[in-house]
Design a protein around this nucleic acid. Sequence first.
DNA 1: ACAAAAGTGTTTTTTATACACCCATGC
DNA 2: GCATGGGTGTATAAAAAACACTTTTGT
Lengths: 243, 243
Amino acid sequence: MAENPLTKSNKQKLADFKVGVDNVIFSVDSQQNRLLVLLVKRQSQPFQNQWGLPGTLVRIGESLEDAAHRILAEKIMVNNLYLEQLYTFGGPKRDPREEIDSFGVRYLSVSYFALVRFDEAELISNTGLTCWHSISNLTDLAFDHHTILNYGYQRLRNKLEYSPIAFDVLPDVFTLNEIYQLYTTVLGENFSDYSNFRTRLLKLGFLADTGVKISRGAGRPASLYRFDAKAFAPLKDKPLVFI
Amino acid sequence: MAENPLTKSNKQKLADFKVGVDNVIFSVDSQQNRLLVLLVKRQSQPFQNQWGLPGTLVRIGESLEDAAHRILAEKIMVNNLYLEQLYTFGGPKRDPREEIDSFGVRYLSVSYFALVRFDEAELISNTGLTCWHSISNLTDLAFDHHTILNYGYQRLRNKLEYSPIAFDVLPDVFTLNEIYQLYTTVLGENFSDYSNFRTRLLKLGFLADTGVKISRGAGRPASLYRFDAKAFAPLKDKPLVFI
DNA sequence: ACAAAAGTGTTTTTTATACACCCATGC
DNA sequence: GCATGGGTGTATAAAAAACACTTTTGT
C-alpha cells in the first residue's frame, strides 16, 4: 500500500470493495461416519434457491475473524471449534452482482475454515434452510463456493495429518477408536492400520489414560483418554505426523 | 455472502474497503549466502521514510494476483519467479489512515509471497528507495508489515521443505551444491548433511544430469543438472520431503 | 604433492507397514 | 463358548542420520 489514494497522482481508478466472509464449516458425524459441511439455501438473487456456504459481509469496525465467528454464531450453537483463515478469492466477475446492480463495487471473499463438534452443534434455525450436507453427495453451489469448499476440504485433510485439531472437536474424554473413526471418515478407509495409528498416537505422549473404561455393547471395554495440553505444549511447533 | 447489501434489511452498516496487495518478495544471494527481502522506503504518510513491503491498491477490473504481479513488475525485472497468496490481514485499525482521512474506508491487505531469481532480478529504480534487505538485519517496518514478513518467512521455509519452488528460481542448469547453498541460506546451516541431501534429492528422480561439468576454481568439477518437468509431473501431488 | 570441492558408500538408528495374536466383555 | 471390539507384540522393509572415504580438479 505504497500509494495514497487521496493524492490523485495515480491515473488508474481504484476499485471499491465490499468484503464478504464465507465459512467452510466441517463436522464429523461419528455415528454414521459421514463428513459434513454446513450449507445454507440462498433466499435472494443471485443464485436464489441454490445452496451455498454460509457467509456475511463485513461490518464497520468488525474484524474478518469476528465476522467469521458471527456467521457461525448465527447458524449454530457450539462451544468447541477450530477456526482459521483459508484463502481470499477476489477476482473481478466472481460475483454477478458486480455487473448488474452494484455501481462498480467489487465483492471479495475471505474464506474461513472451521471444524466443529457434531453432537454439540445445534442448528439455530429449523426451517431446513441451513443444514448439514454430506461431502460425498453435493449439489451445485452458488458463486465459486465449490472451489472454496474443495480448498477447505484439502486443508482439513492436511490439518488432520499435521496438527491436533481433532482434539478441539472430540469430547473431553474419548476412546482411541473414536479418534480413529474421525480420521477414517475424513481421510478415507485406508489411511492407516488401526494398530499402527494407535501406537504412533500414544508414543507422542500427549494422550493421558484416565483409567476409566467404557463399554459399547459387545466387546472389551475401551479406555477413555484425555488430551493433555501440558504434555502437548512442547510439541506445539514441532512437525507432527498422525498419518 | 448470504445477505444482499442493497436490500436494507440489515441494520448494521457494512464497511467499505480499499483492498491493498502487499508482497513479501524473497531472493537468495548465493554469493554472499544471504536471504533477502525487497523493501521500499515510504514517500508519504503514514510511516513516511520507514521501510515497508512493496504494495499497491487494487484497481477496477484487476484481480488480486494481477495486482501482485503489477507491484513486482514496477519494482524489478525478473523472468523466473514463484508467487502465491499468503494471508489476508484485515482488522480495523491496522492502517491509521482509517481514522484520520478516509471517511470510514477500511484498508485490507491481501499479502502475496514471492521468490525470485537473484542474479536475474534487476531493480528498476536506482534511487535507493527500493532495495534488498538481509532478513537477518531488519529495521522496524511500516504498518503490520513485520507480522506479514514473518508469516512469509515461515511459509518460505515450509515450501522449501515440501515443494520444488527452489527450481523456479535456480538457473536452467545448476550444480547440486547450488541447491544445497540455497537451502542452507534459507533453512540454516544444520538443516541437513550435504551428502544425505544429495542422495535424497537424486533419488526423487526429477534431476537430470546433463553430463556437462563446470569447474569453480580449485576442486573437482561439478555436474550440471537440469530440472526434468516430465519426470516431476507424476510427483506433483505427492508429498515430497527435501528436508 | 596437497588442498579443495565433488561425489560415493557404509553403518547405525529410527520409523513405517503389515500382520498375528491375546484380552475382556455380552449374549 | 464364541463373536465382538479392544489392545499388544513382532518381523520386515524403508527411511533418516552420521560420517568415513574416494575421485578429480587447480596450484
